[in-house]
Design a protein around this nucleic acid. Structure first.
Length: 484
RNA sequence: GGCGAAGUGGCCGAGUGGUCAGGCAGAGGUCUGCAAAACCUUGUACAGCGGUUCGAAUCCGCUCUUCGCCUCCA
């Protein structure tokens, strides 16, 4: 079965066929960097990270572009309000570019800990002002945009398909429900700004054919996507809340400029909610990732995210994450057990699991189903190892490869890919290993002599030190409690 | 008001016109000096009301409820 992707534009799953065979161009809307990342960002970028990983695993060469929006857009509606980055700069008493740089670093720090691979290209809006101006000029030249008092607007009437992504195609009807007073200098209330004239004292502004100003929100993605991925990109991803107006505007300005389809497959990930309500910066109910990482292993968060489908909303609660943590530990224990077990003669159908796994991922990146297969696989392994025949060497090697491929390379919830702070410091790890092994040897002797008081004391003291001991058929095994 | 999504067992969460999702938690059991782990058994869930069908939680209609977007937002 071939890879199928749910295309938001057609509202159905479609067989994935890229523009150029074997190569995938992928653009994902990046963050606006004026605050620390929250769980919502994590869901989005973990989801698209897995998309990129699965495409690569499937043999595609992927170029993943994810922008950094470092030009402030407006806090309020499209025409009024304050620049968000400028406001943050004022609050922190630093330069806007300092705000952008600081939160950009913070963003990557968090994403790194979540095991999100860096995009191949991470263009910034401020670094692509000429490209944006060129696109706007092209639109003006083709009659799709017009200038009024130093502002340039896109004329939605010049692009009849405007709104095709969100289903908002009737512009006249749309206006009746709008809460925004339309600016009269626009020819039509739905027209959106491509370039905005800088007001007095505006901190970020650039020279343009229309005077000093700054780009509108929607242009940057079009300009940068087309610069690095060509006029037609294979996959464009982003959050659902950006379907309208952002993505509809991107489609309009890009297709009006090139006359070619802008995106083949639109992918939209759903929201993270708290008690059923969307998590958002403006709603003040967001869960800051850095704080969350104090309580939970980042990879547990990643696992928690991937246990629901990217198109489903994900409700945040500590108990749900706790449940995920227990589940992930079980999977990791299974892998550890394989590593610690001597080969026997039994066997399981690893190929069957591999096929089911591929099918799940090919079906619009069904990570929750993929994870359930991981659990079934784990159960099969444990069941076999509980028996005296155990598993033969080649099956054990294959099982490890299975974990490394699907839990590691594809889902990124288990080593070798991923962050393991203990593993990172090999020297102290080795020293710890020697000490614990020594204690466990002593404990084994005590048990042999039926000195259970001593044996239990060693186990308890180790637990106090954060080291959990489990007696298995293969002997005692230990793990750090924090190392989930 | 317009556009869109969704309601699954104690919790989280897949999926499907007619055998089982899976995880967490709970109960019983095997194993074990004990503990933990693992494994086995156990829950007959799909908002409500109609309709289509031999058969629907899965298709259709209506109702109720929730959420997102229509203003910045992953």
């Amino acid at each position: 079965m071939a890879l199928q992707i749910y295309n938001s534009l057609s509202r159905q799953k479609e067989i994935f066929v890229p523009v150029h065979s074997g190569v995938v161009g992928m653009y994902v809307c990046g963050p606006t960097v004026y605050g620390h990342a929250h769980l919502g960002h994590a869901k989005s970028y973990v989801s698209f990270d897995v998309v990129a990983r699965w495409l690569r695993q499937s043999g595609y060469r992927v170029r993943y572009v994810q922008n950094i929006t470092d030009v402030g857009h407006l806090t309020d509606d499209a025409d009024e309000g304050e620049d968000k980055i400028a406001r943050q700069a004022r609050l922190e008493k630093i330069d806007p570019m300092e705000v952008a740089q600081y939160y950009t670093r913070s963003f990557y720090e968090d994403m790194d800990r979540l095991g999100v691979e860096r995009p191949n290209i991470a263009p910034t809006a401020t670094g692509h002002i000429p490209e944006q101006i060129a696109l706007i000029e092209e639109l003006v030249r083709k009659g799709h945009a017009y200038e009024v008092n130093g502002n340039v607007y896109f004329s939605v009437h010049s692009f009849p398909e405007y709104g095709k992504l969100s289903g908002r195609t009737d512009q006249e009807a749309l206006q009746s429900g709008t809460r925004v007073e339309s600016r009269n200098e626009k020819r039509h209330p739905s027209d959106f700004a491509l370039w905005k004239k800088a007001e007095e004292g505006h901190l970020m502004q650039w020279q343009s054919p229309w005077g000093m100003g700054y780009p509108g929100w929607h242009v940057e993605c079009s300009a940068m996507s087309m610069k690095y991925l060509g006029d037609t990109v294979d996959i464009h991803g982003g959050g659902m809340e950006n379907k309208f107006p952002h993505h509809d505007c991107e489609i309009a300005q890009s297709e009006a400029a090139t006359g070619k389809p802008y995106v083949r497959y639109w992918m939209h990930n759903n929201m993270v909610t708290v008690n059923g309500i969307k998590m958002g910066k403006s709603l003040k109910n967001f869960v800051n990732l850095k704080e969350l990482f104090n309580t939970f292993d980042p990879l547990v968060i990643r696992f928690f995210i991937l246990q629901s489908h990217y198109r489903s909303p994900l409700d945040f609660s500590e108990t749900a994450i706790q449940a995920s943590a227990s589940g992930l530990e079980k999977l990791r224990d299974t892998k550890k057990r394989i590593l610690q077990t001597v080969a026997g003669s039994g066997s399981i159908d690893t190929e069957g699991f591999r096929m089911k796994m591929t099918e799940a991922m090919d079906d619009d990146f069904n990570t929750p189903l993929a994870i359930s297969i991981l659990f079934e696989f784990s159960k099969a392994i444990n069941g076999a190892l509980d028996k005296t025949e155990g598993l033969c060497e080649s099956v054990m090697a294959d099982a490890l490869l299975f974990f490394d491929t699907f839990a590691g390379t594809v889902l990124g919830i288990m080593g070798p890919v991923g962050v393991d702070p203990i593993q990172a410091d090999a020297n102290s790890r080795m020293a710890l290993d020697k000490v614990v092994t020594l204690l466990l040897d002593m404990r084994a002797d005590a048990r042999k002599n039926k000195d259970f008081a001593l044996s239990d004391r060693i186990r308890e003291k180790l637990l106090d030190a954060g080291i959990e001991v489990k007696d298995t058929r293969e002997g005692a095994s230990w793990s750090l409690k924090t190392e989930t």
